[in-house]
Design a protein around this nucleic acid. Structure first.
Length: 424
RNA sequence: GUGGAUGUAGCUCAGCUGGCUAGAGCAUCAGAUUGUGGCUCUGAGGGUCGUGGGUUCAAGUCCCAUCAUCCACCCCA
């Protein structure tokens, strides 16, 4: 076997796809219950969108994008995140004429050229929510709280919510300057990446995990202490709303996120048991992004959550198995004429809304029965010369083993009846 | 991009300090009185031992490179 899946990609095989569909369904339910409507944007965009939107100095743009030149000599990039494309789509398609705020959700693959490890892949999936056109703290609080409902419904326990505010263009520059002043004396002791961040984005020094930096860095001033009055009250109000929902969270003044577009609220969800990539989601407010992408000045907030990490967390908690889709009836045919009849009957069943299958390998009865059993078939209909002669079928209920002769014209009715009577 | 570990059938693994035709369990397929699944028994198919070099009379077993996986750093979902 010399042709394999590209590094960092995964195949979701039929045995596990049920779990994924289950997760996706709960995501959609929660989002739509909260008034979000789905939006689907292209998998690739002009590179410039991410350079401007996500930020030139971010790791994502600097070294993680799948960028290529297409045959028309355009620079194209596989989307590394969902927010910039969503904003671009809404701005381009007439955000101004849409009812405000625009509340949308998305669900799909993202691409980042990173070194793969548990919970980190080059093609991965995210779902996200965006509220565009709402300055209110209620939007921040909602966007933080809705994914928590998804996590709960998935059985993911003990999610830690970290929140912070990183200020706005009115108060952040002063904070940056203050940070640079406090760090200047120890510049020589910092790790190389911190030295380079010192000028470009000193906020990032706050969350450096390197031991050396941890020791060298003096206790930094906290931005929460010097937020402008507007940012301060916005943050307090977000907290008050979360308290009202009984959402537990930790205020983490060191929480800085790696995308340049954030303003004010930032937050992250963490869980244990899935390895070092323990952030299952994160987001924040991005009041400047719409304008950056060419729209009118518009406040906005959003979240994004990693589905692979959610699935990992589910498996860590419960095992997350058992999402098979058993079929209703399997036709076991003996002989040429019976096979033809089974084929037709299977299609009859399907047109009645019943899931039905039949053997197409010309196998013996035993093999057909085994296949039906493994497929989780609720009923098996056996057709041989005896049944053909009386236009019937030997209908067997697999769970009990009971069987009886049923006219072919009445099989569908029987199945529907049995299904209606059952729990589901 | 950096460091560490690992890489034998579809899956989980065994294979001692290099030595004959490379094994097990599970899975798959086929049989076990001729028309009946899940249990049991029997048998079969399936591996250029990740790939490419090298050392050696001889390499799955040693060395180098490369690719991949996992873990940590980094970053984030």
């Amino acid at each position: 076997m010399d042709i394999t899946a590209p590094r960092g990609t995964n195949d979701i095989l039929p045995d596990e796809v049920g779990l994924w569909q289950h997760v996706e369904e709960l995501v959609r339910n929660a989002a739509e219950r909260a008034g979000y409507r789905e939006i689907r944007t292209p998998i690739f965009e002009h590179t410039e969108l991410f350079e401007r939107g996500v930020g030139e100095a971010t790791d994502i743009v600097e070294k993680e994008m799948y960028t290529f030149t297409d045959r028309g000599d355009r620079s194209i990039t596989l989307r590394p995140e969902g927010t910039a494309p969503v904003v671009r789509a809404l701005v381009e398609r007439g955000l101004a004429s849409m009812s405000q705020p625009a509340k949308v959700y998305y669900l799909g693959p993202m691409f980042r050229y990173e070194r793969p490890q548990a919970g980190r892949y080059r093609q991965f999936h995210q779902f996200g929510l965006e509220v565009i056109g709402a300055p209110s703290p209620a939007a921040d609080a909602e966007v933080i709280a809705v994914p928590l409902e998804v996590f709960r419904s998935l059985g993911i326990q003990d999610v830690i919510v970290n929140i912070n505010s990183i200020g706005c263009p009115a108060c952040r520059p002063a904070y940056r300057k203050l940070l640079q002043e406090t760090y200047r004396p120890v510049l020589g002791k910092l790790c190389p990446s911190c030295v380079s961040r010192y000028d470009r984005n000193p906020l990032r020094l706050l969350d450096c995990k390197s031991e050396a930096c941890r020791r060298a860095l003096p206790e930094p001033p906290m931005i929460l202490d010097i937020l402008c009055p507007e940012c301060r009250s916005h943050f307090d109000e977000v907290r008050r709303l979360l308290d009202g929902l009984n959402v537990e969270y930790a205020i983490n003044p060191r929480l800085v996120r790696g995308l340049d577009y954030y303003t004010r609220t930032t937050f992250e969800y963490n869980v244990g048991g899935i390895g070092s990539q323990d952030a299952i989601g994160g987001g924040g407010r991005y009041d400047g992004l719409v304008e950056e992408v060419g729209g009118p000045p518009t406040p906005a907030v959003g979240v994004a959550c990693g589905l692979e990490r959610c699935v990992l967390a589910m498996r860590a908690m419960t095992g997350g198995e058992e999402y098979d889709a058993p079929i209703d009836i399997y036709f076991v045919a003996l002989g040429e004429a019976a096979r033809e009849k089974a084929f037709e009957l299977a299609f009859d069943m399907r047109s009645c809304g019943i899931s039905a299958d039949f053997d197409m390998l010309d196998r013996g009865m035993k093999a057909q029965m085994r296949y039906a059993g493994k497929a989780g078939s609720r009923f098996v209909a056996i057709i041989g010369d005896n049944e053909l002669a009386v236009e019937s079928v030997m209908l067997k209920r697999m769970a009990t083993g009971d069987q009886e002769l049923v006219r072919q014209s009445e099989v569908a009715e029987r199945i529907l009846e049995a299904r209606g009577g059952a729990a589901k």
